[in-house]
């Protein structure tokens, strides 16, 4: 069961001379819901851009499903090949605004499969149904609401049946009910498609409801100061910062 999917070793990330995190180590096991926590500005989004190959770390290695991704002489082609097994839901949805929802979801399929247009149309309809947006094929991203954009982005992230999905603050800007529905959706995807999930979030209810493993990034020390199952962390917090974070400063 607990096969490692992402293995991060000694990862140091910087913008020019400004080091954001130093010597970060963690492992995401297959079928984990792995939560990246931390105060605002500690570098969670930055970490995600490194994990998805957009930003080169200063040093350190990443293994993606056993394959080199950063370090170990990994090339851009290796990263592209690995990212084909991944889906990403961006903070804003990041749908391509000049294309309809159907075209957005179809693009990766056209790109990386030999399916016929009719088959692609069926798959697109299925993915939209899965996220509760059936019938919105011909809408442009500008014509739907923020929450719908997130769901459409999720449908696109799931287009190629990825083995791992990265989420950047999926519930930011959603009302509590939509946020809960999104959590349920994420859990369903994980259960039914056996996906590994890496998620950046501040939402405590989400963290406890869906997280199976986690790390807490600290902006002061620029390292990981805690890790493990969020519910366990809540029971025995290893330090005050994390206790503060998980209990919202109450207690």
């Amino acid at each position: 069961m607990a096969e490692p999917f992402l293995e991060i070793k000694d990862l140091t990330v910087a913008y020019d001379e400004n080091v954001i995190m130093r010597d970060v180590n963690f492992t995401v096991n297959a079928q984990d819901v792995f939560v990246i926590m931390g105060a605002s500005g500690c570098g969670k989004s930055t970490l995600l851009t490194v994990l998805t190959g957009l930003k080169r770390p200063l040093k350190g290695t990443e293994l993606f499903d056993g394959q080199p991704f950063w370090g170990n002489n990994a090339t851009k082609a290796d990263r592209d090949a690995s990212m084909r097994k991944a889906g990403i839901l961006y903070q804003s949805g990041a749908l391509w605004s000049s294309m309809t929802l159907a075209e957005n979801i179809a693009l990766p399929l056209e790109q990386y499969t030999d399916l016929t247009p009719a088959e692609i149309r069926d798959i697109v309809a299925l993915k939209l149904d899965l996220v509760g947006l059936g019938g919105f094929q011909d809408y442009y991203p500008a014509e739907i609401s923020g929450g719908m954009k997130k769901r459409a982005g999720l449908a696109r992230a799931l287009a190629l049946d990825p083995q791992i999905v990265f989420f950047d603050e999926p519930s930011a800007g959603l009302d509590p009910i939509s946020s809960k529905n999104l959590d349920d959706l994420i859990l369903q995807i994980k259960e039914n498609l056996h996906t590994t999930i890496v998620i950046v979030t501040h939402e405590l209810p989400s963290i406890f409801a869906i997280g199976t493993n986690s790390i807490y990034l600290d902006a002061q020390t620029k390292t990981v100061i805690a890790g493990g199952n969020p519910n366990e962390l809540l029971k025995n917090p290893p330090n005050e910062t994390i206790e503060h974070f998980l209990t919202r400063g109450k207690k």
């Binding site: 851009t49 991944a86 961006y90 990041a94 391509w96 605004s97 693009l107 790109q111």
Partner: peptide, 14 residues
Amino acid sequence: MQVNEEVDALKTMG
């Protein structure tokens, strides 16, 4: 498109 992370979405899709 850069601001909306749309360019990132393209890049990560290879």
